[in-house]
Computed example of a mutant assay.
Amino acid sequence: MLLDTASLYFRAYYGVPDSVKAPDGTPVNAVRGLLDFIARLVQDHRPDDLVACMDADWRPHWRVALIPSYKAHRVAVETPEGPDEEEVPDTLSPQVPIIEDVLDALGIARVGVAGYEADDVIGALAARAAGPVDIVTGDRDLYQLIDDARRVRVLYPLKGVGTLQVADEVWLRGKYGVGGAGYADLALLRGDPSDGLPGVSGIGEKTAAKLLDAYGDLAGILAAVADPASKLTPAQRKRLDEARDYLAVAPKVVRVARDVPLPAFEPALPREPSDPAALGELAGQWGLGGSLRRLLDTLKA
């Protein structure tokens, strides 16, 4: 089980009241909410391995160099020599280091790689996994990793993590008209304002799906643009031709990187905390209470 950790703690932050606080008054709603999410996921799905995948760089410069608008509207502070700072609610950002410390003390694998997003870490881990993989994320971008042949699916939270959309290729084709391999091409043609991806003017989701059904993939669509005998409408041909510069770089931006240099780590789900003393201190300092106890009980079971 691969967790898109930021996606989940953002959901926890907005789903748990900020009146949930540590003894010193610091909000810990995202921390406690995430612990409850993990407990429920472990209880319901019984994974052998669990990895909390992290954004070491939520907006990699190599992606921005290709499409400058990539996530630009979410930048709080630009830092030319390091990762840009993301605009995050004031009461959430202090909770992220607490989350990291608690996961480490529990012994739950936490993996982030400099220069890459959590999506890339998830893509690399999914590509290397021998067995079935469940990816837990609220980010549709990761639908591109769905692969029934390799038993890779996405669990998309609809309400907390107790109600999940199990997204496999049958569901994906029914919803979007493409399989996992085609989803990235659909996304880059359609565009995504939330990620600052312009897409191709006049090509929405349904049109993109029809083009991919007719021509197979982005390369096939571009070949059709150059083929006077293809059945593209004049407007589609014009818009796709005008978007060639964007379409030349968008695949590298939209597709997850699978060649991420992953560090050594232990993915096995722990039965007992790896550092009980540190975990006890964190529990007391931050008032983790029932959320931590429920997770520990679930791990033991």
Rank of each mutant, 00 (worst) to 15 (best):
G123P: 00
G123W: 00
A124M: 04
A124S: 15
A124G: 02
L125C: 08
L125P: 05
A127Y: 08
R128P: 03
R128G: 04
R128M: 00
A129C: 10
A129R: 08
A130H: 13
A130Y: 05
A130F: 10
A130E: 10
G131K: 06
G131S: 11
G131P: 01
P132M: 00
P132W: 00
P132H: 06
P132Y: 07
V133H: 02
D134C: 03
D134V: 08
I135H: 01
I135K: 03
I135R: 04
V136Y: 07
V136R: 03
V136N: 02
T137R: 03
T137Q: 04
G138F: 04
D139G: 08
D139H: 06
D139N: 15
R140K: 15
R140S: 09
D141V: 00
D141S: 12
D141Q: 08
D141A: 10
D141Y: 05
L142P: 00
L142V: 10
Y143K: 05
Q144F: 06
L145K: 09
L145C: 09
L145R: 06
L145Q: 07
L145I: 07
I146Y: 01
I146G: 01
I146K: 01
I146S: 02
I146Q: 08
I146V: 13
D147G: 08
D148S: 06
D148K: 02
D148M: 12
A149N: 11
A149V: 11
R150H: 03
R150N: 00
R151L: 14
R153M: 02
R153F: 00
R153I: 06
V154S: 01
V154T: 10
L155A: 06
Y156L: 13
Y156G: 05
Y156C: 02
P157A: 10
P157C: 11
L158K: 15
L158F: 14
K159R: 15
K159I: 13
K159V: 15
K159G: 15
G160P: 09
V161N: 03
V161W: 02
V161P: 04
V161R: 02
V161F: 07
G162S: 10
G162M: 12
T163W: 13
T163A: 15
L164Y: 11
L164V: 12
L164T: 10
L164N: 08
Q165H: 14
Q165D: 14
Q165P: 13
Q165V: 14
Q165R: 13
V166M: 15
V166H: 13
A167I: 11
A167M: 12
E169R: 05
V170D: 15
W171M: 11
W171L: 14
L172H: 02
L172E: 04
L172Y: 05
R173A: 09
R173H: 13
R173Q: 12
G174E: 15
G174K: 09
G174A: 07
G174V: 11
G174R: 09
K175V: 05
K175T: 12
K175S: 11
Y176R: 09
Y176N: 13
G177H: 11
G177I: 06
V178Y: 05
V178P: 00
